[in-house]
Design a protein around this nucleic acid. Structure first.
Length: 513
RNA sequence: GCCCUCGUAGCUCAAUGGACAGAGCAGUGCUCUUCUAAGGCAUUGAUGUAGGUUCGAUUCCUACCGAGGGCACCA
């Protein structure tokens, strides 16, 4: 990565001039003042401007860039042709491979109904994050947890509804499922069993929607009933906790001493009727996950579960589970009351289904709509607004650029070859240079995003790349140019990188629009 | 009451403690005999309030105000 190479050179210079200076080098791509900038001279202490001048002198021998000092003492780097050639070479290099196994668990919606707009966030984000981690070289597994234990309260509630003893979760859709399963439900002896039967059907539909409708593939669909309850993982986990003397009985229930580890109060793991609480189930689930030897487990939870994060971390500590656990909180999507929503609320109990949104706006637009925002943004969801925005969604601008590139590639009769910035005439053209600089940033974007999980950076990058291309498109005629061969190679490369970026987001890169 | 998020332009969102706070949409004014005008150019416009730390704060800390969420033997 060109950024790393510059960083190394800066480090060398700093170590020589300021050997006592131990801190890390800050460098960032910033098109405003140079291709890359660093504020290291400000961080060293003393006179920043003088520091910068000294560093500049040391760095000015580099083949990769030229340096200038600006403002308070910022170092600005402008890539040379050799520097750009180096950057382009990196684009074709095989990505690093890490041994680390990472699991991303997301959506995990209860099998009691269809996915709504809140689930969309976790769905698209989790999928894109898993894609980015894969691209960064990690071994990634995607998992979906199905809360289908016959013992769980909600499955029992669902069972009651199935048996005609309740109304919970009842929708038209559910009614027809119940009538289809009528005979089987009759035979089931209790609410848990009836609920489980029904949950299986609901889950089947949800899985189909996720795979076909949302185009998200999971490596494992983890059934709480089959993998935990039936295999007695709950009991085993309980034994372990008891052995560690972390559980005690009170008022007929079994409690976990979480307060000893910093929680506000202890929590129930076994209810007085002997059933397993959600907390114990989750502890058992995470014990199972870490037994599968992931170096890192990433959970994406809704904000309504955030209070549970601390407890989960405590439980992990108690069981001394090996590996990192990161729990990301996806802020809730709240509904804005509008005319459109009033209508929907009558029909569907104030819930907008993700399926309806995708049907209305199209998968690509919906994906972009969600992925543009950080996970921590409080989204206020207004269907009218979403509809209005989808028509003007920057995703179309980005895709349009793809279509234009395809069109050029189709029309040109020269065969493209690999692009090199060295010995190249076209790199002297400003819009070409700008485009190349943006292309070079691609691996950096992947690296940064794999590190901080800010997936929305990719939408920004895709848009910026499309924007650079649009300016190039306006100013540089490819077909018929004396440099057509090189320009075609540049367009092909740009298309490749833009399509890759979109693919990571789960968005299509159309040939024409 | 306690805890967690979040308050940025008219609207929806960006911004590793750094330079002049960026985009899109909306508004205003230009621009189509063009490799796709779903385009391009210009322009108006913002950090909730009050302090603190720092050479430098949208970012970190404190208080307040406002929005959402959580404080179960629900998940």
């Amino acid at each position: 990565m060109i950024r790393d190479l510059i960083k190394k050179e800066i480090e060398k210079a700093v170590n020589k001039i300021y050997p006592e200076q131990g801190r890390g080098i800050d460098i960032y791509a910033d098109g405003k003042f140079g291709d890359y900038s660093s504020n290291i001279a400000l961080a060293i202490g003393g006179n920043p401007r003088e520091n910068a001048e000294k560093l500049k002198e040391k760095l000015s021998g580099s083949k990769l860039f030229s340096v200038s000092v600006a403002g308070l003492g910022f170092l600005n780097f402008t890539l040379s042709e050799e520097g750009m050639a180096e950057g382009l070479k990196n684009l074709n290099a095989k990505p690093k491979k890490y041994k680390e196994k990472v699991q991303v668990e997301f959506i995990s919606a209860n099998p009691t109904g269809e996915l709504h707009i809140g689930h969309g966030r976790s769905a698209f984000y989790g999928n894109a994050l898993a894609n980015v981690l894969t691209a960064a070289g990690y071994k990634v597994e995607r998992e979906y947890f199905i809360n289908d234990s016959k013992e769980s309260t909600q499955i029992k509630e669902l069972g009651k509804t199935a048996l005609g003893k309740g109304q919970t979760y009842l929708t038209d859709n559910l009614k027809s499922k119940i009538s289809k399963l009528k005979d089987k439900i009759k035979k089931s002896k209790n609410e848990g069993k009836a609920g489980y039967l029904l949950a299986k059907e609901i889950q089947k539909d949800n899985q189909k929607f996720i795979e076909k409708g949302l185009r998200i593939k999971f490596d494992k669909w983890f059934s709480e009933e089959k993998e935990l309850r039936a295999k007695k993982v709950f009991e085993k986990t309980l034994e372990l906790l008891k052995k560690k003397k972390l559980a005690y009985e009170k008022e007929g229930a079994l409690w976990l001493k979480t307060s000893q580890f910093g929680d506000d109060e202890d929590k129930v793991i076994l209810r007085s009727d002997g059933s397993v609480s959600y907390f114990l189930s989750d502890i058992a689930y995470h014990a199972d996950k870490f037994k599968r030897k992931y170096n890192k487990v990433i959970d994406i939870w809704g904000a309504d579960h955030h209070g549970h994060v601390k407890r989960m971390m405590i439980a992990k500590e108690m069981l001394k589970l090996k590996g990192d656990l990161e729990i990301l909180i996806s802020q809730l999507v709240t509904l804005k009351k509008g005319e459109e929503l009033q209508k929907l609320s009558k029909r569907k109990g104030n819930v907008i289904l993700l399926k309806d949104l995708v049907d209305d706006l199209g998968l690509d637009a919906v994906r972009w709509f969600y992925l543009q925002k950080t996970l921590s943004t409080h989204m206020e969801f207004d269907l009218d607004l979403a509809k209005e925005q989808s028509a003007k969604n920057p995703v179309y601008y980005t895709q349009y650029a793809c279509a234009r590139m395809s069109s050029i590639l189709k029309k040109s009769s020269v065969s493209s070859r690999q692009l090199s910035a060295k010995k190249s005439e076209i790199i002297k053209i400003k819009p070409v240079r700008n485009l190349v600089v943006k292309l070079i940033q691609f691996p950096e974007v992947i690296e940064d995003t794999a590190k901080d999980y800010q997936v929305h950076r990719l939408t920004t990058y895709a848009y910026e790349l499309a924007n650079e291309f649009s300016q190039f498109y306006r100013d540089v005629k490819v077909i018929g140019s004396e440099n057509e061969k090189e320009l075609v190679a540049l367009v092909a490369l740009t298309r490749n990188i833009l399509a890759k970026t979109l693919k990571l987001l789960g968005i299509s890169a159309p040939e024409k629009m």
